[in-house]
């Protein structure tokens, strides 16, 4: 379970846009149409590979309901990436994006990477928000954009991996101070057990805790 980096993600957006389903599709490759309302936050994890390096993603799926906002805000600061999700068949979820973004800007780390996702793109016959509108909004606010479907799994992998790629690039560019954990990025475990002893690359050695 050794990894080069650990990234913390949050998934935010209105209730019912499919945040939990996106996570379930990504971590378990499953879809549930009868998914319960999320209470507070739920956790998921998966390993991916970027640039041949193992990256561990820790993902916190938050409740979209207004009543949980104060709780979910606690998760903003420590996240390196956020998936901001709306439902392409429900216009109001798109209209609320600005307020979500404002929340994120206020509480999150300035370098947090935000990916905008128009979910439920399998239901294009009921579409209420055009692809172009989503793209336009992302452009205006400097977000990465993608339409996806948790049901058909279309673009789900891509959304999570592309976000990780963006974060990874920011690391390469030296934007983050990696000694500070509050940006949601943690370099792989170094061997802190005396039995390890190897001087090689810490992320490969794994150590006792990986």
């Amino acid at each position: 379970m050794s990894y080069a980096y650990l990234f913390k993600y949050i998934i935010i957006g209105d209730t019912g846009v499919g945040k939990s389903c996106l996570l379930l599709q990504f971590t378990d490759k499953r879809f549930r149409s009868d998914h319960d309302l999320t209470i507070g936050v739920e956790f998921g994890a998966r390993m991916i590979t970027i640039d041949n390096k193992p990256i561990k993603l820790q993902i916190w799926d938050t409740a979209g309901q207004e009543s949980f906002r104060s709780i979910t805000r606690s998760y903003y600061r420590g996240a390196a990436g956020a998936l901001l999700v709306y439902d392409i068949t429900r216009r109001e979820t798109f209209n609320h994006l600005a307020s979500w973004l404002e929340d994120a800007r206020q509480h999150a780390n300035a370098n947090m990477t935000v990916m905008l996702i128009g979910n439920k793109c399998d239901l294009s016959h009921r579409r209420a928000v055009s692809y172009e509108e989503g793209e336009q909004f992302a452009k205006e606010h400097g977000l990465v954009f993608m339409e996806a479907s948790a049901k058909t799994a279309q673009n789900v992998e891509e959304a999570f991996i592309k976000t990780a790629g963006t974060i990874y690039k920011k690391i390469q560019d030296g934007i983050f101070d990696l000694s500070n954990e509050s940006n949601g990025i943690k370099p792989g475990y170094t061997v802190h057990n005396s039995s390890g002893g190897g001087a090689g690359s810490s992320s490969q050695a794994g150590g006792c805790c990986s």
Partner: peptide, 18 residues
């Protein structure tokens, strides 16, 4: 359950064994 999974997924149980 969520925290248990996180403990298993990220730290693993090695420290507990120690």
């Amino acid at each position: 359950a969520s925290n248990q999974m996180l403990l298993k997924e990220t730290m693993g149980f090695d420290p507990l064994m120690s």
